[in-house]
């Protein structure tokens, strides 16, 4: 039911190690990995939810042993083959053939405009907002995709079955549970929902602490 990326609240990871004057990219290949990923994304063969899910469905063993940008590379390699952009033979070092997608290649002179234009996730939707700021809701008891077994979702396990209060309405946004599987944008209302720490943790540090998550309307039910 769960995947290894869903680690909020987990015990045993040790201290956070802040860096003081670290470089943006610790190693040259980190920078290349980020750039290759962004450039490949501009070929238009997947969306951000598909690429996130490609990293999340690495085997738990690979997810744990790969460093951050190794996960990016593995997710990218898997997507390139799955989408037929690259053949397994090419990935294994065989002689590459030119791609029909070459016309879409991101050229250097277009990079600033592409990075500056971004990819907004808000979309018009026929789904009307059921909740108002201040309403109490409860999240799904099981943090799982309802469209695809084992599929992508953005409700973390630690916030499943929890009572919270609508804090902010963000408008209607692409539903990752659908978009990650090529099932369409299925945009619906998105809210910032605030949860008392006491609702999430057996031993919260301080009773007045809170955690806020951005959650889609279909993850939520009204409570009295």
């Amino acid at each position: 039911m769960t995947r290894p990326h869903d680690m909020g609240g987990r015990f045993g990871d040790g201290p956070v190690l802040p860096d003081q004057d670290a470089h943006v990219f610790e190693k040259d290949w980190h920078a290349r990995a980020l750039a290759v990923t962004l450039a490949s994304g501009s070929l238009g063969q997947w969306n951000i939810d598909i690429s996130r899910h490609a990293r999340e469905r690495l085997s738990p063993k690979d997810y744990a042993r790969f460093s951050y940008y190794e996960k990016w590379m593995a997710g990218l390699a898997d997507l390139l083959v799955e989408r037929g952009v690259v053949t397994p033979d090419e990935m294994a070092g065989g002689t590459p053939t030119s791609s029909p997608l070459a016309a879409r290649m991101l050229k250097a002179e277009r990079v600033p405009a592409v990075l500056a234009s971004g990819g907004p996730a808000d979309r018009p939707s026929d789904v009307s907002a059921l909740f108002s700021v201040g309403d109490w809701i409860v999240t799904r008891k099981i943090a799982a995709n309802r469209l695809v077994e084992g599929g992508h979702t953005r409700l973390p396990r630690y916030a499943a079955g929890a009572r919270g209060q609508i804090l902010r309405y963000h408008g209607t946004h692409v539903l990752p549970d659908s978009a990650a599987h090529g099932l369409g944008d299925a945009a619906e209302p998105l809210y910032a929902v605030v949860f008392p720490a006491t609702e999430l943790w057996a031993h919260p540090e301080y009773p007045a602490d809170e955690v806020v998550l951005d959650l889609w309307q279909s993850y939520l039910k009204a409570v009295e």
Binding site: Y206, E210, V211, V212, L215
Partner: peptide, 11 residues
């Protein structure tokens, strides 16, 4: 009090 924001969407 601490309010932690978990960025679960594109916000």
């Amino acid at each position: 009090a601490v309010r932690v924001w978990d960025s679960t969407a594109e916000v």
